[in-house]
Design a protein around this nucleic acid. Structure first.
Lengths: 343, 343
DNA sequence: ACGGGCTATGTTAACGTACTCATAACATAA
DNA sequence: TTATGTTATGAGTACGTTAACATAGCCCGT
């Protein structure tokens, strides 16, 4: 019996034409009812709505998008959904997207391997997106040479600036300056650094900020330590420092998780925080996990970042595609893990 | 000068027809090249690819989807991206989706207010999705009466079973039994419960498991305490218990964050963990945040859950839509926050 | 020389929508 | 009565893609 002519419920989804047939009106009238347009007789409207209900009509996203050339969705490409930075990115962008009645088309690339911007762009471009957002948490091999696809807004979330692509990020360099200035004001000079993995862009900039702050004060930076963002790696580093460096008065850990680990290590080594050693972190991410969070840190307004990212990826008419560089400053949160250094 | 005829780069995106014109071939040949089909002369292929590059061709998702009736994307509707449960859901589903070369269309509903399944379904159905996944972390007002949209796979992630919709979740009831059995085996009987907010479905089932386990042993359950999943709320509850209940020998906190807070409170109250009081949690979520995580807990295989959810939302040919109930068991992780109770 | 099978390419149709325009029925004003 | 406007509805079209079919050229064996 092959393909049915089209008026019954075959396996094909129900279209406006099917509804129209059932309600005895034209397809155009169904369209009007579906979109709540005026100039439809009340009785007709009800008849059409009944038919829609009856047949289980679902408006075709493909047809609609093909017709009016917009997808009402923004593409987001990240390497690993669960990493704190990416998670907060999704959250911020989700908020912004919701304000614009926009969905998010999420693609997760390899969790471990680096990926090229060209590859990410190619994949995203074939999806229903009005703009492309790429989270570049580690340097892409083709960052310098990358050209964005013309005709579609592209934003890279990273601290590196690009001549032809708008980049937006929290200011992972400036946060270090905020924290270092706070420590300097308290009187610290011997400030050790526990960083994240060196391939991380955030790490590179947080570390550069630490180093530049020291050099600006003509203090020779000591060897930075490298962790993996986890509390355990912070603990290891803190243990090492407690045993090998009795001149340090402060530790700057590049995220709160490592800072939390470092504090535990210092205390296990018989050092008091903040009396003997001050500790600072970044992200303000401990509140849910640790009772009485006392860590001095920097908080980023991730919703603002999400908004900026979104609005540059999907520019409203007029805001058209100038390439810009946006760095959103963090806010210093002073708690009780920092104090004046011991004499 | 109105609308250009169509052979130059107006504001309209570049279509296969544009590429075809530029390369001097038919549009169908461009399609063949774009999809890597055989039977294209090598010279022609190169000419077409050059034209694509030149014009910045982007395949139209709308056209393609309209044509072949599939979107290669699965819809995911959650209330709050950042909540641990939802985050892990996204992660698990992202993995499964990637294995099927599928994207995720993510919609965040109101973070605070409850939403009806009908509303969520209606919104998701208008998006480019081959299946719909709804995270129901709090009871929807229309759960009982909800009918899924015919013709599109629908899965609700929740512990409640539904007669007409497949539901999948980690076993938030069974995890309580695992933990309680562990505590019973050690010899505990006075086991207090610190739960999450009572509107949470996970909370409802974890708590029911605690209560049923006690009743099965003919132990009268004591009054459960209610937190908000945060370490601080766990601390408050722990403090309260330390001061008001000297007969308890164990605390079951409904997630690790509250358990961590409770442990801190007990220690601040002069009680040792696990010597005086054993503490267990759920989720195994502390590793990144706490050094030397010693909490006995239950870990869920979230990737397995993601796979199950995905594959029931987007059934492969043949697996067609039977309504099933899937509860994925957790795994007991015994660390050092539990011990034999003091005499 | 000619039919049969291959390869490369073109032509047509269909997917579902919403815009533009046309038309019919009807109300109102001159 | 006729001109003019308003409202409800329908017809036609274009959006970009791919499957199915059609065609043209070529090589090969008889």
């Amino acid at each position: 019996m092959a393909r049915r002519p089209s008026n019954d419920t075959g396996s094909r989804p129900v279209s406006m034409a099917d509804v129209a047939r059932a309600a005895g009106v034209s397809q155009q009238t169904v369209s009007r009812v579906a979109n709540g347009l005026p100039n439809v007789n009340e009785q007709t409207r009800q008849r059409v709505q009944a038919a829609m209900q009856e047949l289980g009509f679902r408006p075709s996203y493909a047809g609609r998008s093909l017709r009016d050339g917009r997808y009402h969705s923004v593409g987001l490409c990240v390497n690993d959904v669960t990493k704190f930075g990416n998670l907060t990115m999704i959250d911020g962008i989700a908020s912004a997207a919701r304000e614009h009645s926009c969905a998010i088309t999420l693609v997760e690339m390899s969790k471990t391997e680096e990926f090229s911007l060209a590859e990410a762009t190619r994949r995203m471009a074939a999806l229903p997106v009005d703009g492309i957002i790429i989270g570049m948490s580690r340097m892409a091999p083709d960052f310098e040479t990358f050209d964005p696809l013309p005709g579609i807004g592209t934003v890279i979330v990273t601290m590196y600036a690009h001549p032809r692509v708008t980049t937006v990020d929290s200011d992972h360099y400036g946060c270090s300056l905020l924290l270092m200035d706070h420590l300097f004001e308290l009187g610290h000079e011997q400030i050790r650094y526990i960083g994240g993995p060196s391939f991380s862009v955030d790490e590179q900039f947080r570390r550069a900020g630490w180093q530049d702050a020291l050099e600006r004060k003509h203090i020779e930076p000591t060897e930075p330590l490298e962790g993996d963002w986890s509390a355990n790696s912070g603990y290891e580093a803190g243990r090492y420092l407690a045993e090998h460096d009795r001149t340090m008065t402060a530790i700057y850990a590049a995220n709160d998780q490592m800072a939390n680990g470092a504090i535990a290590a210092l205390r296990d080594s018989g050092l008091r925080v903040p009396e003997d050693v001050s500790v600072v972190g970044v992200d303000d991410s401990l509140d849910d996990f640790v009772a009485h969070n006392e860590l001095t840190t920097v908080r980023f307004d991730l919703h603002q970042r999400g908004r900026e990212v979104f609005e540059h990826a999907v520019p409203e008419a007029g805001t058209a595609g100038k390439t810009v560089v946006i760095r959103i400053p963090g806010q210093l949160i002073i708690r009780h893990s920092t104090a004046i250094p011991r004499s």
